[in-house]
Structure formats: structure tokens, C-alpha cells
């Protein structure tokens, strides 16, 4: 007698099944919600704390209210790393790939879930920061309005950078596999290295993730000011370059994942 798989539904496992698996995995970890809460609350908190130091009204204060978003970028970058390195550390990865041996499809599902959660988190944080910054403005200084040119774009694009940070982390985590090493690389490259290089080499500065988030995405004014040695990237070019960094990390991760033993 042989057990026959008569109860099998037609077709086979698809992207949507794997996206559902990844969503259950992500939402069932307490650390996910702690990270989301911190990433949503910290940037507006920073905007509240620093909003009073805005001396002028208008465009400049929009990017100032978004300064705290760098904390969110760091948090979602690390969270992206953990979604995959946590599986390697615990051995869950073998259960995952036994359930779905098409690894690139699994990675795509992870990317969709991490990217979406980080995007929602980022937009929430960005809008809250904007409003918190406006609340904290000193008396007599007019708050910028969403209807002013570039303001809405600045908020939305800065919020989106959290999604790209999450995908960048996911890609690096897939390449490196080890939590501590991958987090060190993300923090090292993006934050520490970025700051040092940015301080010493002004020509490279506009292309570093840290400066793109702080000077390109949130900008409402011109990218070039008279007397500046080099211009910042325009908001959309900045976002495009960040997306490029995330895509390179994901592509490399996918290439390695498909070839390597799990």
C-alpha cells in the first residue's frame, strides 16, 4: 500500500504562498514590533526635541524635521539583516528551503514583505516627524505646509529610504549570513565609513547613503548652492542611487544564495 497524495491541490507553491509564510514569520517575532515601534517613534521624537532650534521658517525646516529618520534607516537596515541571518543562526533556513526549495522565490518573498513593512514604517515615521517638527517650532516661526513645493516629496522620499535600507540589509544578510558580521558591515559602511569618507572627500559625499538621506531626499531647495564644492544629488536621483545600492546587494545575495549549500 502506498500513501497517495490525492489531497494535493493543483498547481504548486507560488510567490504568494511564500509571501504569506514570510509575513507570518516576521509578524510572529516580538523584535519586529519593537523595531517598528522604535523606528516610528524615534524620528518624530527627535524632531520634537530639535524643532525649537529652527531659526528660519520655510524649506530648511522640512529637512531638519526629518533628521531623525537616519535612526529609522539604521533600524530597518538592521531588521533587514536579521530577517535572514536570524534564520541561519537558528537553523530555520533549512526548514524554509525544505518547504520551498526555489530559493530565489523565497528571497523575493522576503524582499516583498520586508520592503513593504519598512515602507509603511518609514512613511509613518516621516509624516509624524514632519508634524512633530511643526509643533515644536518656536513662536513666531511659521511651519512649512504640505502644499508648499517639494514638501510632500521630501517627506515621502525620506520615508521610502527606510524600505530601501531594509532591502539593502536583507541583501547583505543573505551574502554574509552571520548576524554580527552583517550588522557590522551595514553600520560600518553606511554610518561610520560614510561619515569618515564624507568628512575627508567632499567629491564622494553626495553619493554616500547617509548624505543622500539627509541632504538629497529631504531637500526642498536647489541641490547646488553658490560656493559649494560639489552639489548634492537631486531628490529623485538620490532615491534612484539608494535603490541601486539595495538592488546590487539583493542581486549579489540572490546569486550566492542560488549556488551555495544552505
Amino acid at each position: 500500500m502506498t500513501v497517495r497524495a490525492s489531497h494535493q491541490p493543483p498547481g504548486g507553491y507560488r510567490f504568494r504562498h511564500l509571501a504569506r509564510m514570510e509575513w507570518i514569520k516576521l509578524r510572529s517575532l516580538r523584535s519586529t514590533w519593537l523595531t517598528v515601534a522604535l523606528a516610528v517613534c524615534a524620528p518624530p521624537g527627535i524632531a520634537l526635541a530639535t524643532g525649537g532650534s529652527n531659526a528660519t521658517s520655510g524649506g530648511m525646516s522640512v529637512s531638519n524635521t526629518l533628521t531623525g529618520m537616519l535612526v529609522g534607516v539604521l533600524l530597518t537596515g538592521v531588521a533587514g539583516v536579521l530577517t535572514v541571518t536570524g534564520e541561519y543562526a537558528s537553523g530555520t533556513i533549512s526548514a524554509t528551503f525544505a518547504a520551498a526549495p526555489r530559493r530565489l522565490r523565497v528571497l523575493a518573498a522576503k524582499a516583498a514583505v520586508v520592503g513593504t513593512v519598512a515602507l509603511v514604517t518609514g512613511e509613518a515615521a516621516a509624516f509624524l516627524s514632519f508634524f512633530a517638527g511643526a509643533v515644536a517650532l518656536r513662536h513666531g516661526i511659521t511651519a512649512p505646509a504640505l502644499s508648499q513645493p517639494g514638501v510632500l516629496r521630501a517627506i515621502v522620499l525620506t520615508g521610502a529610504s527606510l524600505s530601501l535600507a531594509g532591502l539593502f540589509g536583507l541583501g547583505l544578510g543573505t551574502i554574509i549570513r552571520h548576524t554580527a558580521a552583517a550588522i557590522t558591515v551595514v553600520v560600518g559602511i553606511v554610518f561610520v565609513g560614510g561619515t569618515f569618507i564624507g568628512q575627508s572627500d567632499f567629491a564622494i559625499r553626495p553619493y554616500l547613503p547617509l548624505y543622500i538621506v539627509s541632504h538629497s531626499l529631504g531637500a526642498t531647495g536647489p541641490a547646488c548652492l553658490p560656493g559649494m564644492a560639489s552639489c548634492w544629488l537631486s531628490p529623485w536621483s538620490g532615491l534612484g542611487l539608494l535603490a541601486g545600492y539595495a538592488a546590487i546587494a539583493m542581486l549579489l545575495g540572490g546569486l550566492i544564495l542560488a549556488r551555495r549549500d544552505a
Binding site: 491541490p9 507553491y13 511564500l18 504569506r20 509564510m21 524554509t96 518547504a99
Partner: peptide
């Protein structure tokens, strides 16, 4: 539940 979802 996560594993079950992957294979419907």
C-alpha cells in the same frame, strides 16, 4: 503556521 502557508 508559516511553514504550512508556504505549501497552502
Amino acid at each position: 503556521a508559516a511553514l504550512a502557508a508556504s505549501n497552502a
